[in-house]
Nucleic acid binder design. Structure first.
Length: 549
RNA sequence: GCGCCUGUAGCUCAGUGGAUAGAGCAUCGGCCUCCGAAGCCGAGGGUCGGAGGUUCGAAUCCUCUCAGGCGCGCCA
């Protein structure tokens, strides 16, 4: 659609040049806007204003020459010059009906694009340590990562979703020790919990489980506590994610990096390339040579590798798997690590633009307008499961996607639960359910939803609101593309709220099912197209599109 | 001190360098004998944190500055 208009404009500029109205050989990049006001047309371009300084002519003069030629296109109703030199293009209605034709024909594939050209993208997200349950912050990352993956796929990328499991190192050992202590407690011993141990109730569950299965940690054949504990936690995480509607393509174990020698191999490669040095008994990676603000330790003086060492091995492995783009979704408190990972990529001789890091800002839960206490020190995180149980999966995911990732999010639990129009998730879902209900009502009255596109029938749609709706439906594909390019899933959320905000007033003002069978059919088709696009958008977000609610 | 993110209506936020800066919530006033009122209509509300600069044009780009959040371990 947009491409067609761009070529019309390019043709008009060429025509103006041949006629001598434009003398230079420059072709500006054609930028098409969807104007905010309908009096500015269906599309608007600033091409003449970009040409003006090159041509040394008044922008309006150039715009006039171009606009006259655009008007001659058979698809164009009229074309006007406005303001400082905008060219406003009004398309013929038949051009817009092609949008409905496209929706009817492609259905749940409407909005799909080939932008990604099948390029392989890896999205790594959540990756919470298997030492405790997922909290709401992880939930936001999960919602963003999953929606982004859906959007990238829809835009033509080949996406692989991965979860990196931190199953090596001290944290897992501490988890094992925490379980051991709880087991002792269960056997009647008085215990004292060290400060850095995991104290949550879930540790008791794991301890009780262990005792039930093996009796004690010394029993023959009993697994190590850290292994038992971390795999129990991981199972719990997996089931939370499944309930949240998220399936990963792969689960990558940190421990496997040690077992297969990848950490050692990565350090060797850095050594060979001369980026490693020894100092004070430790082995360092000279990340400052690649833009980091200080050098980083790979192997500590006590001989143990750092977390960073496994992290660089992991990123080396990701790159060597041949993704054209790797995306990390991290909590905003990790932004300090970005430069050292980029340093690694550069040190290995790759272009670090393959890496995109999306930082997820904090979530503040509100109840009754005041923040829910989330004492970090006590480890009293509100879990994802608690929120999901309280407000439901759909509201939960939708709310996580209502803001840009790098903006803090106030999550109003009361609002998310409320069945009132001010709740945005219901506002959008209601739009879908309402349409399905109208279609059912029409069928009862003997007006079935037409199954095929019919231009003559659809030309009965002559209301201003109908044109606006169709125009918005027609921009869905671009929203998906821009959302994929910018890696900003919230754009789809806003698109859907706008769509619903166009539909509801239309519905209130115009009757769909009337005595006029043609008009009824035409409006049913339009309504169904709205429902189709709403469902497609909601599906990208991982939110259901209910038929009834 | 250095680095990253954020400052837009009372609140929460949208806004690929374009036209008179937009939503939602909250406030106030209306709309169901009629397709789903989980909806609609109307009203008020702004020095886009501030100051310079680039540009025909800046909320958007650059510099400085103020305010808030986060990060700056041989922790994970």
């Amino acid at each position: 659609m947009k491409a067609g208009v761009v070529s019309i404009i390019k043709g008009a500029i060429e025509g103006a040049r041949e006629a001598g109205a434009i003398t230079g050989g420059n072709m500006p990049e054609i930028v098409l806007d969807k104007p905010k006001k309908e009096e500015f047309g269906d599309f608007s371009t600033n091409a003449a204003m970009l040409l003006a300084p090159l041509e040394k002519k008044a922008p309006r003069e150039i715009a006039k020459a171009i606009s006259e030629r655009i008007s001659q296109s058979p698809y164009v109703e009229k074309c006007e010059v406005a303001g400082p030199g905008f060219i406003n293009i009004f398309l013929k209605k038949t051009f817009w009906l092609a949008v409905l034709e496209d929706i009817i024909k492609t259905g749940e594939g409407y909005g799909r694009s080939g932008l990604g050209k099948g390029h392989k993208v890896q999205v790594e997200f959540v990756s919470a340590n298997p030492t405790g349950p997922l909290h709401v912050g992880h939930g936001r990352g999960a919602a963003v990562g999953d929606a982004l993956s859906n959007i990238l796929k829809f835009a033509g990328f080949e996406v692989s979703k991965e979860y990196y499991i931190n199953d090596a190192g001290r944290q897992v050992l501490t988890l094992g020790e925490s379980v051991r202590l709880r087991m002792e407690e269960l056997s009647g011993k008085a215990i004292e919990f060290p400060q850095d141990f995991y104290k949550g109730e879930y540790i008791k569950d794991i301890a009780a489980d262990y005792i039930e299965k093996y009796g004690s940690a010394d029993a023959p054949g009993a697994p190590r506590l850290k292994d038992f504990g971390s795999s129990a936690m991981l199972e719990r995480i997996k089931s939370d994610l499944r309930e949240f509607g998220i399936e990963f393509d792969s689960w990558f174990s940190e421990r496997s990096l040690d077992d297969t020698g990848m950490v050692a191999a990565t350090i060797d490669e850095l050594k060979q390339k001369g980026h490693v040095f020894e100092s004070e008994g430790a082995l360092w990676f000279r990340t400052t040579a690649f833009g980091d603000d200080k050098d980083r330790v790979l192997i500590k003086a006590d001989g143990e590798r750092t977390y960073f060492a496994s992290d660089i091995a992991y990123h080396r492995n990701k790159i060597e798997r041949g993704f054209s783009s790797i995306v990390n979704i991290w909590g905003a408190d990790h932004h300090g690590y970005e430069n050292r990972i980029r340093a690694l990529i550069k040190a290995l001789g790759y272009d670090d633009s393959v890496l995109k890091i999306i930082f997820i800002q904090l979530v503040a839960l509100l109840r009754g307008g005041v923040p829910v206490a989330m004492g970090k020190r006590e480890g009293e995180f509100v879990t994802l499961r608690q929120v999901m149980d309280e407000v439901g999966k759909d509201a939960c995911r939708f709310f996580f996607l209502m803001r840009r990732s790098d903006a803090q999010l106030d999550f109003d639990l009361d609002l998310a639960k409320s069945q009132a129009p001010e709740n945005p998730v219901y506002y959008v879902q209601y739009c879908h359910a309402r349409i399905k209900s109208i279609i059912a009502f029409a069928a009862e009255k003997g007006s079935a939803l037409p199954t095929a596109f019919d231009a003559a029938l659809l030309s009965r749609l002559d209301q201003k609101e109908e044109a606006e709706l169709i125009r918005h439906l027609g921009s869905f594909g671009e929203v998906v593309e821009r959302s994929a390019e910018a890696m900003e899933p919230h754009r789809v959320t806003f698109y859907l709220m706008d769509l619903a905000a166009l539909f509801h007033p239309y519905y209130n003002k115009n009757r769909v099912v009337t005595d006029d069978p043609e008009l009824t059919s035409a409006r049913l088709l339009l309504c169904n197209a709205v429902a189709t696009v709403a469902a497609n958008g909601l599906r990208l977000l991982g939110v259901s599109a209910p038929e009834k609610m």
